[in-house]
């Protein structure tokens, strides 16, 4: 952990909210990104991410060193999965309902800033398809795939965040990818988009 981050953590443990907010600013993008990919809706994800940081501040005394980012993301993934479990117990609106207006839902947009209109359409469709496919994965596989393939954590970090063994993480990632392949290749448009890369 960087020295500056350690200082902020120490100050936050003593109750310095402003120092904690420095940590929030350093990690909010990643925490929010994971929440969006797991929850599938930006507004809900913002609420879950906010709850993550509040919970993290409340539990700072339980932080025992190591990767602060991993500790934070463990709280975030647990919060997101708790949210999903709660949402499944009540009626909800699918994220597919928003597909007609992707500008309002940048979760479905892609990174390339200068694509041709055709490419933009393809990439947007691909991103939409990926998000839909992610939503169909079991929670543990989706979490592992988001952490590994979307956020770029290595296996050991994924294991630390999800509190699973390395073998379990490898298995979840492998099964998750295979299932994504089944889902995405069943969609002809997506297969074309994937093949054109």
């Amino acid at each position: 952990m960087a020295e500056e981050e350690r200082r902020h953590v120490d100050a936050a443990v003593r109750g310095d909210v402003e120092s904690f907010n420095m940590l929030v600013r350093a990690h909010e993008s990643r925490v929010y990104g994971v929440c969006v990919r797991l929850v599938g809706d930006r507004d809900d994800a913002a609420d879950v991410a906010q709850d993550t940081f509040i919970s993290a501040f409340s539990r700072l005394s339980t932080y025992r060193g190591g990767s602060f980012r991993a500790w934070l993301l463990r709280i975030a993934t647990n919060a997101a999965l708790d949210f999903l479990r709660a949402r499944r117990r009540r009626p909800t609106v699918s994220i597919d309902a928003h597909d007609d207006d992707p500008d309002d839902h940048p979760v479905l947009q892609v990174a390339d800033a200068t694509p041709t209109p055709e490419m933009a359409l393809d990439q947007r469709e691909l991103a939409q398809a990926i998000q839909r496919a992610l939503a169909q994965l079991p929670d543990d596989q989706r979490t592992a795939i988001v952490l590994r393939d979307v956020e770029g954590f290595d296996y050991a970090e994924v294991a630390e965040i999800t509190r699973a063994s390395l073998g379990t993480v490898k298995s979840r990632i492998s099964r998750g990818r295979a299932r994504l392949r089944d889902i995405l290749t069943a969609d002809g448009t997506v297969r074309t988009a994937l093949s054109s890369e």
């Binding site: 909010e28 940081f53 991103a127 990926i130």
Partner: peptide, 16 residues
């Protein structure tokens, strides 16, 4: 494709 999904920024500050 997963890796190229865009990094997302929250629309509001998440500071506590």
């Amino acid at each position: 494709a997963l890796h190229e999904l865009p990094a997302l920024q929250p629309r509001r500050s998440l500071a506590v």
